[in-house]
Design a protein around this nucleic acid. Structure first.
Length: 395
RNA sequence: GGAGGGAUGGGAGAGUGGUUAAAUCCACCAGACUGUAAAUCUGGCGCCCGGAAGGGCUACGUAGGUUCGAAUCCUACUCCCUCCA
């Protein structure tokens, strides 16, 4: 190991390609596979750090672009860094703003130097260079920091993706140089869309720079699940065993299981919290919209055998009511439930890996949990088939 | 007793001769959401047939009438509101 610092990651067990390990950060140890709740603006929407601790969150993600614009890196630095600012003692990872280059593409100009953002708040211009982003994240003080990268949407042509791969590599080099000997762990990010050969180039060149951890970016941006799974598996195999692998922006329950199966150690995703605020809750058998009529009079918890505070305390009918009445408590209780669901899933996967039975866990999960897309497709198919039967019966 | 105003789909409320099964909002019924510009967005919402396209029926207080055509114009009735006595 080339770095003088103690290793960030320890690989503890494997079951097939699935791995269990631990991240050691200045703010404590995190078991992997790990899911990072997203606190874009220094808050996991609707929750506070005490809530996060209670549901078993080990590490959270915050966003450099958003916090730089508001309240500003200096303010956060003066208020104790990101940890003191949000009163969270656990590990924090900050994303670079590279994703905003994708999600806010109509508000930015991209060139070799960096990304020029037109603030979504007040229209002011801000140049994000790889060097500036490293500096901003130093000010925020997260345990793990991400370099500025270029993320192309699904369907981008090969030339564009190839360009993003090489630019991301050049920016990674610049980030590394600017980073110097900081105690923060700077990850490398592999790009390449769904092009296997580009992923190979990106991974090889990024790994050659010897980062303490590697992220897979540019997925879950509109490609099919099959493509996303294939690319994840392919890319994970290109990364060194002794470094954590972080799949950026992925986090539906079925994706977490399938990507842990392909060797991923870390995830972050807004999905559990966003859909929670919109009334969708995870259960062992799939997703349900708790604001719908079947739940109006339902007694007992929404999820079967869920150990979260929400399920332990309130009947489903109460949650249904809170959503219909647009009571603020709805967002908190639903977010607690969905995050606990996902965090517990990670715990269960880790346990299965350690005990060498991940594959059977995965099968059992898939048998029981119906993803929404699949469910919708099934419904459509059933409707179509019954219509055809009726037509045949008439003839 | 007199004068005036008004009755529209579950609610509020547009619409004053055809393009109106009737704007819009709410409620209701569903769906979506993946490194958060999201407590957001999309679809449906008279009845019947249809997978759909489409078709049929009923409807703007009640009953008549004028008109090729009425939620819209006329008459009567019922109810509600305001003001005067």
């Amino acid at each position: 190991m080339s770095e003088a610092r103690p290793p960030l990651f320890t690989l503890e067990a494997a079951s097939g390609s699935a791995r269990a390990g631990a991240l050691d950060t200045p703010h404590g140890r995190v078991d992997t596979p790990a899911f990072m709740p997203v606190a874009t603006q220094g808050s996991v929407k609707a929750l506070d750090s005490a809530d996060l601790a209670r549901i078993g969150a080990g590490i959270v993600l915050a966003n450099t672009y958003h916090l730089y614009l508001r309240p500003g890196v200096e303010v956060i630095g003066d208020l104790g860094g990101i940890h003191g600012f949000m009163a969270w003692d656990g590990p924090v990872l900050t994303d670079s703003g590279g994703f905003q280059g994708f999600s806010l593409e109509h508000l930015r100009e991209l060139d070799e130097e960096g990304i020029l953002f037109k603030s979504h708040l007040d229209g002011s211009l801000h140049r994000f260079t790889p060097e500036a982003v490293v500096e901003h994240q130093r000010g925020l003080g997260a345990d793990i920091v991400m370099p500025l990268d270029v993320c192309e949407p699904a369907g981008a042509d090969r030339g564009a993706v190839e360009g993003s791969v090489h630019r991301t590599l050049r920016w990674a080099r610049r980030s590394l140089d600017a980073h110097g000997g900081s105690g923060q762990a700077l990850f490398g990010i592999v790009q390449g869309g769904t092009f296997g050969d580009l992923r190979e180039v990106s991974a090889a060149e990024t790994v050659a720079m010897d980062f303490p951890g590697y992220a897979i970016g540019g997925l879950s941006v509109g490609e099919s699940k099959a493509e996303m799974y294939d690319t994840t598996g392919l890319t994970a195999r290109l990364l060194p065993d002794d470094r954590p692998r972080y799949l950026m922006g992925v986090g539906s329950p079925e994706d977490l299981v399938e990507c842990v199966a392909r060797g991923i150690d870390m995830f972050d995703c807004v999905l559990p919290t966003r859909i929670a605020r919109n009334g969708a809750l995870f259960t062992r058998s799939g997703r349900v919209n708790v604001d719908t009529s079947p739940f109006r009079t339902m007694d007992g918890p929404v999820g079967e055998s869920c150990d979260c505070y929400t399920c332990a305390t309130f009947p489903a009918g109460y949650l249904c009511h809170l959503f219909r009445a647009k009571e603020l408590l709805a967002y908190r209780l639903a977010s607690i439930h969905n995050l606990r669901f996902v965090l517990r899933l990670m715990e269960e996967m880790r346990e299965a890996i350690v005990e060498g039975r991940f594959e059977s866990f995965r099968r059992a999960f898939a048998d029981r949990f119906t993803p929404p897309d699949e469910g919708t497709r099934r419904d459509q198919k059933r409707k179509w088939l019954s219509a055809m039967e009726r037509t045949r019966a008439r003839e």
